[in-house]
């Protein structure tokens, strides 16, 4: 699953007294009962944990080992130390892909966050039909990515719908996917189209959780729409905002299909991202060691966002325990 929702974060922040009381009772409940429950609890977690060991941590350790080897999948791997990383450092395609990945992460995160927030604010006006509009827009998030990319490839064609719609505004022919300066922005826009409505829902949950009397108080103070947004909405929405930024960044750092189908990484290397490069290097050029080294780099990028994600989590947990 690519995304979680933060709607639970406010819940988590709300202290659950029942659970704390249960914990207290447990501690009083004597060793044998406690030990048994400990085992039961651990047993519940065990299947998932085993799964993660087999399919996440195991492969990652393996990837790290592979990244220090030359391996063409046919002959046995041969230890080469940091050679793969040295090769990457001097490879312009890797450098371009690394920069593209950062641009893509930054661009799509910003656009997803802004668009998601804007849509949520629009829905939150509670004008007639707002709820149906939300449901309709959420559908873009349920459309299979493969369908999204195929549809948008046609829409962004030099004579496609997008240019047709822009024509009345005096915009001439725009080669969205073949101009090296426009291809990445175009893919970012399509990414935002697919994912922003999801975060719209997340933001909306955050907005709904803000008590109405805060707004009423601000209104009595004479605050206009903008001031109310800046002084009431935004501070209270901060945790949600932070969450959205981190999750969409995590999402963007692993994206593969959108550039793969829409531009094939081109024109030139203009939209090649690290996940594409891993696949290409490993399965097309049979350089599994080098592919593993790229994986480790991508892993390091994601680590940053994951640590941020955990900090949000820890903060909400602390609030929870307070």
């Amino acid at each position: 699953m690519s995304t979680a929702h933060s709607a639970r974060l406010p819940d988590a922040a709300a202290p659950d007294r029942g659970e704390r009381a249960a914990g207290a009772r447990l501690r009083r409940g004597g060793l044998r009962f406690g030990r048994r429950l400990q085992l039961v609890g651990a047993a519940f977690v065990l299947p998932a944990l085993l799964f993660f060991l087999a399919f996440k941590f195991g492969p990652m350790l393996w990837a790290m080992e592979l990244s220090l080897s030359a391996y063409d999948m046919v002959s046995a791997p041969r230890f080469v130390g940091l050679e793969n990383y040295a090769k990457l450092a001097e490879d312009p395609v890797f450098r371009a892909s690394l920069i593209n990945t950062f641009v893509y992460i930054a661009g799509s995160t910003a656009l997803i966050t802004l668009a998601g927030l804007a849509l949520a604010l629009a829905i939150n006006t509670a004008v007639p039909g707002a709820r149906h509009c939300m449901t309709a827009m959420f559908l873009t998030n349920l459309m299979p990515i493969i369908a999204v990319t195929l549809v948008w490839r046609f829409l962004l064609h030099p004579f496609g719908l997008v240019n047709q719609l822009l024509q009345p505004f005096g915009v001439g022919r725009v080669d969205w996917l073949t101009d090296e300066n426009l291809a990445m922005p175009a893919i970012i826009a399509v990414t935002a189209w697919r994912f922003a409505p999801y975060f719209m829902v997340v933001f909306l949950a955050g907005l709904l959780a803000i008590p109405k009397d805060y707004y009423e108080a601000a209104e009595i103070d004479g605050a206009g729409v903008v001031r109310r947004f800046v002084h009431v909405t935004l501070p209270l929405l901060m945790p949600t905002l932070f969450f959205v930024v981190v999750v969409s960044a995590l999402l963007a750092s692993r994206i593969f299909l959108m550039p793969y189908i829409m531009t094939g990484g081109g024109p030139g290397d203009a939209t090649r991202v690290l996940s594409m490069l891993i696949y290409e290097t490993g399965f097309s050029y049979l350089k599994m060691g080098e592919a593993a080294a790229i994986s480790v780099v991508l892993f390091a990028i994601m680590l940053v966002f994951t640590v941020l994600q955990m900090q949000i989590f820890m903060r909400s947990e602390r609030a929870h325990l307070r």
Partner: peptide, 28 residues
């Protein structure tokens, strides 16, 4: 393929693009 894309779609310089291709292939 990528060199041809650069040249045809983005008007890249032919000699410079071919130099890039040769260097990348030599690395491989």
């Amino acid at each position: 393929h990528r060199g041809v894309q650069r040249i045809l779609l983005n008007r890249a310089d032919i000699k410079a693009t071919l130099d890039g291709i040769a260097a990348a292939v030599d690395r491989a």
